[in-house]
Design a binder for these strands. Structure first.
Lengths: 195, 195
DNA sequence: GTCTATATGAAGATAGAC
DNA sequence: GTCTATCTTCATATAGAC
């Protein structure tokens, strides 16, 4: 049955964020209007401002939430094995986490330039922290003699670029299962940094 | 000395495209107005329509020009050696060509969703043709026993993602020269597909 | 919390003078 | 070819009624 006015705040907020996520991912932040988001949610544009102070904050909250989810997920899956074991865990984690959130990942990469400088700095710090986790693995592996890379920073960026590229083509229910994709990429990553 | 009205069509056209290229790369197609482009060129907004029928065509022409430059450059640098030789040539070509055109590359990746469906289809075809060149090299190398990859299509996308990632950090005059970058990436690509 | 209505500004594109 | 001026539409954001 219909609810009275004033009783929807707990569900409208998440719906606003979900609609914004989908629309930003499909059309781009700058190309999406608050009216479009409102239309998707089923309210008038003015009502959105009960849930976000402005459009910029809506974008920033989506991106920050994604980056914090990433860090939280990594923290919940620690791996203390050898460098090759840690690299395999990182590779599989990256592919799985990112393939499960294509819209968030797309926005996190494409909309950086639409953040204010202050908001950009926050996201950039979180992104850098994640990269540093991989670079540490590679450095440790070079020190232990398991890996051979001429430049750990570049190898870090190269591996992340390769892995994130999965999102440009992977679709659930397609030719390959996620398990197969993980195995194929782990095979390539392993060889890329092999001693 | 000042030229009379009517004598600038040969230089204003390229300047419009150059200004649009820089602004689209920096702020994104949807976030840039025709007035901004006109301001950069030093004319009024209405004058732009002597050089493009509309904003969409301006974007499309920039992207198509870039993709056709890519194909032309590849056609001018044929390599008929062994698969490893051809892969090294492709790797070095890709890094060099893309690093020389950071704005065009950025737009070609970021603004695909702002193309009309018809224009998108044209760009996508050109992009696919370039990818197919790499896939052919990898397939030939697998057939000859030089390479070992479990899936040539995925290996193609993985290598291109890795190589295009160079543009996210490489800056001329930085820590590494382009020659060093080419060498480091060729080393990683070589190992990625090694038998 | 959501609505209608609106303030204020800027967008893409065109018309006609020069 | 470029200008000024404008048409028409749409944008973000706010105010106040319910």
């Amino acid at each position: 049955m219909a609810r009275t006015a004033g009783s929807h705040s707990d569900i409208t907020g998440p719906r606003v964020r979900k609609a914004a996520l989908a629309l930003f991912a499909r059309h781009g932040f700058a190309a999406v209007s608050m009216r479009q988001i409102a239309g998707e949610v089923g309210v008038q544009a003015g009502a959105l401002y009960n849930y976000t102070p402005d459009k910029q904050t809506l974008l920033f909250d989506l991106m920050r939430g994604h980056m914090e989810d990433l860090r939280a997920a990594r923290a919940n899956a620690p791996c203390n094995g050898t460098p090759p074991e840690r690299l395999e865990a990182f590779t599989r984690f990256h592919i799985r986490f990112h393939s499960e959130r294509p819209e968030e990942v797309f926005i996190a990469y494409m909309e950086l330039r639409n953040l204010t400088p202050e908001n950009f700095a926050v996201i950039e710090t979180l992104r850098r922290q994640y990269e540093d986790e991989l670079e540490t693995i590679l450095s440790d592996g070079v020190a232990s003699g398991d890996f051979a890379v001429s430049d750990t920073k570049i190898a870090t960026l190269a591996v992340i670029a390769m892995l994130t590229g999965v999102n440009t083509w992977f679709r659930e229910g397609g030719r390959l299962s996620l398990d197969e994709v993980e195995r194929i990429y782990w095979d390539m990553v392993r060889k890329t940094v092999a001693a």
